[in-house]
Design a protein around this nucleic acid. Structure first.
Length: 466
RNA sequence: GGCGGCGUAGCCAAGUGGUAAGGCAGAGCUCUGCAAAAGCUUUAUUCAUCGGUUCAAUUCCGAUCGCCGCCUCCA
């Protein structure tokens, strides 16, 4: 039974979709002003595992992830670069999908862009103006939080107690707002500024939060099942989305809110000034593989902070290699016909362990432990030659089940060796047969230089690429 | 100032009121011509510190120390 920790209720809740087997999911996507970093990808990879596990559980999924392609930063950076915003964001949009694909994240069903949904945003703002949840001030439109009694229900922030203490960082009088906590729905833009849209309430550009309300409700309806994102979005972004959406519709916006915790690097906050800020591309350039990065991102449950260290990433590379090697060896094994009921039962139990771990608010740490336990069990069985054909089929099937969610094994590739290398391997077998170990080792070293690693087993020689 | 989280072996970490998952690294052994791979064994009498509750606490409560996050840029 699948359970989620719902930020809205603060409780672990049994998951029950609004419409029997259909699940509608919204995840806040990237702001495409730069290359996404590994912290961003922790959240998106969590989102991917969430979507994959929902499918695993048999739900029909509609997953929406927006791309924020207009905000102050994008406008400023585009201006500096002498480009219109679409030109400026295009390469980052492309890079985002490249990186996301490389990390093994499935693409959402719908990936709407903010700039293509301005009309929907304007409609919501009009509604909010009509029903008194919004007001105009100096040409901009603000949300009136005093008109929304539930404001703060997600983040549970007590606005009485804390604003004064944090006042140094809270900009209260930059705009003429009724209340310091009121936020912009629509920002006035002068005629001479390139990035702006006309609305019944004046030319401007959208505030940050309205895009998610508009796109989520357009594609998922006024009320939908799950809304997820990084913890830092809980306040103000998600709180404001709720205020806008529920203020406009008077209906529950999202039933369940999930927040992924931040990633730290070597125990510290990732920041450019500390020099520990890494994009996905940075790590690939350093020679790390996408699967190891994904493994590391999944090694800690999403709702706990993850300490990203290079020592652990090196370890993840070894782990991934061992897992893949395991699957290959199992596939290549030459088992006896038949069935080993004991092994079958154990394998099924590990699958059950995996599922109950994932059911428990997506505990990927425990899910991975179930996978490793299965691998150890089967390795032992393989060594004792008690794996039969039917067991192998079952185990490979279970591995596929695990991997339909984790996606760390990668494609099964039928690799070919070129004739020259085949010949060398044959020659080495010949030399070994003749106990010419000097020649045999020489060939092994030669192949190692070419990136081919040999393993002599009872059933002959196997090779793999390093 | 308000609020939340965390501190478990060399490293990354799960977890629970009844006596510590898993991964990586290390060590020994088995297998091997030697390797590699794999397997087996081994690595926390102990879960930041100090008190309290309890038959029993790493798990609950309190205090202390340290770290991280949010309080309108932020995955």
């Amino acid at each position: 039974m699948l359970k989620f920790h719902n930020t809205l209720s603060g409780q672990l809740e049994e998951f029950q979709p609004l419409n029997n087997k259909d699940v509608r999911l919204y995840i806040c996507g990237p702001t495409v002003w730069s290359y996404a970093h590994i912290g961003n990808f922790r959240t998106f990879t969590f989102g991917d595992v969430l979507r994959r596990y929902l499918k695993y559980k048999g739900y029909n999924l509609t997953h929406v992830m927006n791309l924020t392609d207009v905000d102050d930063r994008i406008i400023n950076e585009a201006k500096k670069a002498g480009k219109v915003i679409d030109e400026f964001t295009a390469p980052f949009v492309e890079a985002f999908w490249e990186d996301s694909d490389a990390l093994g994240n499935e693409r959402p069903e719908i990936a709407p862009r903010a700039t293509e949904h301005i009309a929907e945003m304007i409609q919501i703002i009009e509604k909010l103006l009509e029903n008194g949840h919004a007001y105009e001030s100096e040409g901009s439109i603000y949300y009136r939080i005093s008109a929304f009694a539930d404001y703060g229900k997600l983040s549970k922030i007590n606005f009485q107690g804390n604003i004064s203490g944090a006042s140094g960082r809270v900009d209260t009088d930059k705009y003429d707002k009724e209340n310091a906590n009121d936020f912009a729905l629509w920002k006035l833009v002068n005629e001479n500024e390139p990035t702006g849209w006309d609305a019944s309430f004046g030319r401007g550009r959208p505030g940050w939060h309205i895009e998610c309300s508009a796109m989520a409700m357009k594609y998922l309806g006024e009320t939908f099942d799950i809304h997820a994102g990084g913890v830092d979005l809980k306040f103000p972004h998600h709180e404001n989305e709720i205020a806008q959406s529920e203020g406009a519709t008077a209906k529950l916006f999202a039933k369940i809110w999930l927040h992924s915790e931040h990633l730290k690097v070597e125990g510290e906050t990732m920041s450019k000034s500390l020099g520990n800020y890494y994009t996905f591309r940075d790590l690939i350039e350093k020679g790390y593989t996408a699967s190891a990065i994904r493994y590391l991102l999944l090694s800690v449950p999403y709702h706990k902070q993850l300490n990203f260290t290079f020592e652990t990433l090196d370890g993840a590379e070894n782990t991934i290699a061992r897992l893949r090697d395991f699957r290959n060896r199992l596939s290549e094994a030459n088992p006896k016909d038949g069935i080993n009921p004991d092994l079958q039962e154990k394998a099924k139990n590990y699958l059950a362990d995996f599922e109950s771990a994932m059911d428990d608010n997506l505990n990927t740490s425990q899910a991975l432990a179930a996978l490793h336990n299965l691998v150890r069990e089967v390795n032992t069985a393989l060594a004792h030659e008690i794996v039969c054909t039917e067991d192998r089929s079952l185990i490979l099937y279970i591995i596929d089940k695990f991997d339909s969610v984790l996606n760390i094994f990668g494609e099964v590739k039928e690799e070919m060796l070129d004739a020259e290398i085949e010949k060398l391997i044959e020659e080495r077998q010949e030399a070994r047969h003749n106990r010419d170990f000097a020649r045999s080792d020489e060939i092994r070293d030669l192949l190692a230089e070419k990136g081919i690693v040999l393993e002599d087993t009872k059933n002959g020689v196997r090779w793999k690429r390093k």
